[in-house]
C-alpha cells in the first residue's frame, strides 16, 4: 500500500467520521491559544472532549471549565456531574452565570454515568462536565453518541497515569503542568483528533486572579539555587 493510498484512506475516514453526526457548529474553547491548536478552530458541538492529566492539580479542570463556559455562552445551561464531591464552585470567577449551572452529586459510578448520558442527550444543554478517571471506554462512546443527538459539548476530565488505548472522543488533550516559577503555565498536547493530525503542543497560561496577598516567597532550595 503506497503512502498516497494510506493518506487517501485517512482522508476518507476523517470525512466519514466528521459526517457521522449532525453539524452543530464550533464554539471556542475559551482560550484563543487552545483554539489554534484544535483542527476545527474550537470545540465542535455535539462531541466529547477528554482532558487527560496524570494527577489532580494539573490544570485540566480549569481548562475544561473555561470550555464549558464558552460552550454555554449563548444562554444555554450547563451541567456538572460530580462523582467524587470535589467540584468547588467558589473557584469560578464572579461573573459565572450560576443561574444556568446545574450540579449533579452522584454517590455511585452508575449514577454518574447515567446522569452524564441524560444530560448529554438533552436538547439545549450547552456543556456537560464530569470527572471520571476509570471509565469503560465504551461508556465514552455512548456519551459521544448522546452528545451528537443534542449538540451539547461533553467535557471529561480524567486523571490517569497511563493513557487509554481506545478513544471514542472527538478530541483527547493531555494537560501537563509546568513547575516554572511565575505565571502559571501548562502544556497542552493534542493526543487525538477526529479531524486533523494529533501531536501538536501549545503552552497555555492559566490566569491567577489579582489578589492582595503578600508576594510569593521562594523556598530555601530555590533561593540557594538562585544564589
Amino acid at each position: 500500500m503506497t503512502p498516497n493510498t494510506l493518506e487517501q484512506l485517512r482522508e476518507d475516514l476523517r470525512r466519514v467520521e466528521s459526517n457521522a453526526g449532525k453539524a452543530w457548529g464550533v464554539v471556542s474553547s475559551g482560550r484563543e491559544v487552545v483554539d489554534r491548536l484544535l483542527p476545527a478552530g474550537g470545540l465542535r458541538r455535539g462531541t466529547l472532549v477528554e482532558w487527560l492529566a496524570s494527577e489532580p492539580g494539573s490544570g485540566a479542570t480549569t481548562l475544561a471549565l473555561d470550555a464549558a463556559r464558552s460552550a454555554a455562552g449563548d444562554g444555554r445551561p450547563m451541567v456538572v456531574v460530580d462523582r467524587r464531591g470535589w467540584f468547588y464552585p467558589p473557584a469560578l470567577s464572579i461573573d459565572w452565570p450560576l443561574e444556568r449551572l446545574l450540579v449533579v452529586r452522584c454517590r455511585r459510578d452508575d449514577e454518574a454515568f447515567w446522569a452524564c448520558d441524560q444530560a448529554l442527550r438533552t436538547s439545549g444543554v450547552g456543556a456537560v462536565l464530569t470527572q471520571c478517571d476509570a471509565v469503560d471506554e465504551r461508556r465514552l462512546r455512548c456519551w459521544q453518541l448522546a452528545a451528537e443527538q443534542s449538540g451539547a459539548v461533553g467535557l471529561v476530565v480524567r486523571h490517569l497515569a497511563r493513557q487509554p488505548e481506545a478513544c471514542f472522543s472527538d478530541l483527547r488533550l493531555l494537560v501537563a503542568p509546568s513547575c516554572a516559577v511565575g505565571r502559571r503555565r501548562v502544556s497542552l498536547t493534542l493526543l487525538r483528533a477526529r479531524q486533523g493530525r494529533p501531536g501538536a503542543v501549545v503552552e497555555v497560561a492559566l490566569d491567577d486572579h489579582a489578589y492582595s496577598l503578600p508576594p510569593p516567597t521562594a523556598s530555601p532550595r530555590r533561593r540557594a539555587a538562585g544564589a
Binding site: L98, L101, L102, V103, V104, C106, A115, V125
Partner: peptide, 19 residues
Amino acid sequence: LVERLSGRLGHEAVVRVRP
C-alpha cells in the same frame, strides 16, 4: 432533564449553586 435527574437521584442530588 431536571425532573428525571431529581426523580432518580433524589432532589438533594440535583442542585443549583448558591454562594
